[in-house]
Every structure is written in structure tokens, then in C-alpha cells.
């Protein structure tokens, strides 16, 4: 895996043009492009959604093991052992990615005392503006006010981030408690193992339902981004997109005179096509799992 650690949090410094695919600067690449996500961040998202899809598919099969599709799936892959193997394998990969991410936050935020990790407009930590934006956004939904001008990370994006962060801690911990039950029982009471399954499956369901309905729509399927927001795959967005989506960040870039550091080349064709295939596959799998989950709920 190439350099997944580099700049997982902030792209604002250490920007090097990574893809030297200059051929892409074709006629459609008029106007300037800005880098929103570094290669490291995009890899992190790729690892996250790939493992999440497998964890969701295998987890749902176990959660709804009485349903027809779960039993068919199990038969198809020669039983539960295979399903659990992939579940545990992806859990390990995702845990590793999570730890790398946390290590970087700690290294940059605490040891290097880098500004913008824990506070300020570029931080993932919620602030007063997010509260104002939430209410302002809802007023705009109802036609009662202007659309808020968002900063680098909007409040729903921060929610997505912390939902995943909290989810990984909770699901991960309860999952490992079940995986290594006799070990965890040395310092946890026995009923905690009962609780682990309840927490693991409910939190997992919440994550699945949230990602496959709300995250998909908010980020990819809503009219402004339809059918897919490519920025998490290509890392780049056009100046026009940047300005309209996050005007406050754009203004800040201008006033701080930093916008030049973020300018990058247009996304190459192959990257756009590749992103489309990967993205649509992920969305398709996610929607399928969502339908299966809902059908299992309805069937009881």
C-alpha cells in the first residue's frame, strides 16, 4: 500500500502534484482545479469503504442468519466459517487503518502541535459555526433563509466522520470482545459478552443503514452531486465546484493567500473512469445490502 500515512488529515501543507499524468490537461480541463483530499485520505476512504462493504455483507448474513438470502449466501460460500473468516480479516484491516489514522492525529496534533487538527476551520472537531450552519441549513430547506456558507468540512461531514470514528471504537471493541471472549472475560463480567453482541449488532445496523441511505444520498445522490461526488476518488474539484460548495473556505484561501498551494492538475481520464466503476459498484452493493436488511426486518 503506497504511503497511506501521508497527510491523512490535512492537505494544506506538503502538497506535491502526485499524479504526473499531464496528458489529462485536455480541453475539458479549462479552469483551475483544487486539491481537496490527499492521496492518503483517498486511500483511507478506499480501505474504509471496501472493508466496510465486506464487513456489512458478512455481518448482515450473520445478524439475519435465519433469512433465506443469508442461508443461500452461506451455502454459496460453503458455510459460516468462510463468512466469519472474511469478517475477521476485514476487521483487522480496518483496525489497522484506524490505528494509522489515530497515530497520525496524535503525532500531528499533540507531538507536532500542528494547528488546525483539533480546532479552527480545518479541524474535524465541531464548533459553534457548525451549530449555526445546521440551523441555517434547515431554515434554507424550508425557504426561510439563505444557504449557509460552508467551511472546509460541513457539519454533516463532521457527523459522518465522528459517526464512523465512534462506530469503529464501539463495534471494534465489542467485536474483539466476542472474538477473544475468554481473554476479555478476565477483566469484564460475563454479561458484558451478552452486551457485546447487542451493541455490536445494533451499532453495525446503524452504521449500515446510515451509510447506505443517508451518506449515499447526502454525498453522492442528491441533485447537486448526482450521480456521484467524485472528489473522494480523484481528490480534485474544479474552482467552480469549490466556490459554490464551500464559499467560506474558498474566501479564506484567497484572503490567506494560500489558494495557490492547493491548485492541482485536472483529474486524468483514467482516474475518472476508474472512480466511476469503483464508486458505482460500491453504491450498488450498498443499496443491495440496504434492501436485504430492510427485507429481513420486514420478514421479521
Amino acid at each position: 500500500m503506497p504511503e497511506p500515512v501521508e497527510s491523512v488529515i490535512q492537505p494544506e501543507e506538503a502538497i506535491q502534484p502526485e499524479e504526473t499524468d499531464a496528458a489529462a490537461a485536455g480541453p475539458e480541463a479549462k479552469g483551475r482545479y483544487f486539491l481537496r483530499f490527499t492521496l492518503g485520505q483517498r486511500y483511507l476512504h478506499a480501505v474504509l469503504f471496501t472493508t466496510f462493504l465486506v464487513l456489512a455483507a458478512t455481518g448482515l448474513t450473520m445478524r439475519f442468519s435465519g433469512s433465506v438470502w443469508a442461508i443461500r449466501t452461506a451455502r454459496l460460500v460453503d458455510g459460516f466459517g468462510t463468512i466469519l473468516f472474511f469478517h475477521k480479516f476485514c476487521a483487522l484491516v480496518l483496525t489497522l487503518a484506524f490505528l494509522i489514522h489515530v497515530r497520525e492525529i496524535v503525532a500531528r496534533g499533540i507531538f507536532k502541535r500542528e494547528k488546525g487538527i483539533f480546532w479552527g476551520p480545518t479541524s474535524m472537531v465541531a464548533n459553534w459555526k457548525d451549530v449555526k450552519d445546521l440551523f441555517g441549513h434547515m431554515r434554507w430547506f424550508l425557504g426561510l433563509g439563505p444557504k449557509p456558507e460552508f467551511e472546509r468540512y460541513a457539519y454533516w461531514e463532521k457527523f459522518d466522520y465522528w459517526a464512523v470514528f465512534w462506530g469503529m471504537v464501539v463495534i471494534g471493541f465489542s467485536g474483539y470482545a466476542m472474538w477473544f471472549a475468554p481473554f476479555f472475560a478476565r477483566f469484564l463480567p460475563g454479561w458484558a459478552l451478552n452486551a457485546a453482541l447487542v451493541i455490536h449488532s445494533e451499532e453495525g445496523l446503524l452504521a449500515i443503514l446510515f451509510i447506505f441511505s443517508i451518506h449515499f444520498v447526502n454525498t453522492h445522490l442528491r441533485p447537486d452531486s448526482f450521480p456521484m461526488d467524485m472528489v473522494i476518488f480523484t481528490g480534485r474539484e474544479s474552482e467552480e465546484e469549490f466556490k459554490s460548495r464551500r464559499p467560506e473556505e474558498y474566501q479564506r484561501m484567497q484572503s490567506e493567500g494560500k489558494s495557490a498551494t492547493r491548485i492541482t492538475d485536472a483529474p486524468p481520464h483514467w482516474l475518472i473512469n476508474f472512480s466511476r466503476v469503483v464508486g458505482f459498484t460500491a453504491i450498488l452493493i450498498g443499496l443491495t445490502l440496504l434492501i436485504l436488511t430492510l427485507s429481513a426486518y420486514i420478514a421479521g
Partner: peptide, 25 residues
């Protein structure tokens, strides 16, 4: 607690997303 968390998060965001969709369209 887990059920309330699940229900409240989903209810809030489904409503939020629905209004957003309508408004954006």
C-alpha cells in the same frame, strides 16, 4: 439505548436528507 440512538439518528437524518433533496431539486 442502542435502539433509541439508532431511531433518533436515522429519523433526524432521514428528515434532514429528505428536506435537503426537495430543496435542492
Amino acid at each position: 439505548f442502542m435502539n433509541l440512538l439508532l431511531a433518533s439518528v436515522l429519523t433526524f437524518f432521514l428528515l434532514h436528507t429528505f428536506l435537503w433533496l426537495v430543496r435542492s431539486r
